[in-house]
């Protein structure tokens, strides 16, 4: 037997090792080069929000305006009847909903309180509106809100979850991932702010349904204030400028229709209430294509005048609607 040539073996091993070392060096340099960031994080660019990476607003859900059919005010105790009548006066549900529509309903589900306390949208109105939408062959109706109290508790205790599901609507609870930063063009407050966008992504109609409530900071919480629920993040900072944020929300959201439920009005202790003694029977249902007009009328049920709610005139100046609701010739009716 001859001994193996150890020189050859050693040479071969050297070559293999050399090749591996070269590959390792190449990999090191390659990875370093690939991840190389010469400057590190820079200062935040002020105008980043307008560079196109953020949405500029929500889609326009409104339907063409018809003079004389902008605002309806229906007296009556039975919410199902009054809301049906109010929509009928504006031209019927067919004016707002077409077959195949995906409709989002945004009630006020802010608090984990039962319907009798009036702090949240009454489930009867939700039931009635969902039924109307399906009667006109809406493809899907979504009921959603970004609650203040724990969302699951709010949707359950307010009775909205049950009413919406029973009528065939899909209840969507907020998740962190449903918010995306949004900037309102022409606004000064809503800049790169997380807004509850995901539930509206596939919708083509939007109906806001709000209870009528006293609100110590802004004087009244109605259909415009209802859009506060679309704000995410630490939205409470906007209370420093409550009138402008409500007006900006009204600029941001262009709903198909808003409904203001003044069957009972929370006169005191709003917007949470907590006692039936905070409520007053006002037996009024308002449907409107003009949020400003609806809320201006609503303020009268709170024993206020529209001038007591500065956000109304700010929104009017921004072209959202009309404070002088009587000029719109509201359609009135009474149902028993």
């Amino acid at each position: 037997m001859t001994e193996p040539n150890w020189r050859n073996i050693a040479r071969r091993q050297l070559l293999i090792r050399g090749a591996k070392a070269a590959a390792s060096i190449a990999a090191t340099v390659g990875v370093a080069r690939w991840l190389y960031d010469p400057k590190g994080p820079g200062a935040k660019k002020e105008e980043a929000g307008f560079s196109g990476t953020f949405a500029k607003g929500l889609p326009d859900f409104s339907v063409p305006r018809k003079d004389g059919q902008v605002l309806s005010i229906v007296k009556g105790e039975d919410r199902a009847k009054t809301v049906n009548k109010a929509i009928e006066l504006l031209g019927g549900i067919e004016r707002f909903i077409s077959p195949g529509d995906v409709v989002v309903i945004k009630p006020n589900v802010g608090f984990a309180t039962p319907p009798i306390l009036g702090a949240t949208t009454h489930p009867d109105v939700i039931t009635a509106v969902v039924k109307l939408c399906y009667a006109k062959k809406a493809n899907r109706v979504i009921v959603t809100d970004n609650s203040i109290n724990d969302p699951a508790s709010c949707f359950t205790i307010s009775g909205i979850s049950k009413a919406a599901s029973a009528a065939g609507a899909q209840v969507v609870m907020p998740k962190d991932s449903y918010f995306s930063p949004l900037t309102l063009e022409g606004g000064s407050l809503i800049k790169d702010w997380p807004v509850y966008c995901a539930p509206f992504a596939k919708a083509n109609k939007l109906i806001g349904i709000a209870p009528l409530k006293n609100h110590h900071r802004s004087a009244g919480s109605m259909t415009m204030k209802n859009w506060y629920g679309l704000l995410g993040g630490r939205r409470n900072v906007f209370h420093q400028d409550i009138n402008n944020i409500i007006a900006e929300l009204a600029m941001l959201v262009k709903p198909t229709l808003v409904i203001l439920d003044g069957t009972v009005t929370m006169m005191t202790n709003g917007p949470t209430g907590g006692s039936v003694s905070d409520l007053k029977k006002t037996n009024t249902m308002i449907a409107s294509c003009d949020m400003v007009a609806a809320d201006a009328f609503g303020s009268t049920l709170l024993n206020l005048k529209p001038a007591d709610l500065p956000y109304l005139s700010i929104a009017e100046k921004a072209g959202v609607g009309t404070v002088d609701y009587e000029s719109l010739k509201p359609l009135r009716a009474e149902v028993t």
């Binding site: 110590h216 409470n236 209430g273």
Partner: peptide
């Protein structure tokens, strides 16, 4: 507190107080 020391309106606390009558008044 913003209204107490910064002269900024706020009262989010009052708004959210769930007690009736509210335990936070202004």
């Amino acid at each position: 507190c913003l209204p107490w020391s910064m002269d900024k309106p706020c009262i989010v606390c009052q708004e959210n107080c769930p007690v009736s009558p509210k335990a936070i008044f202004t």
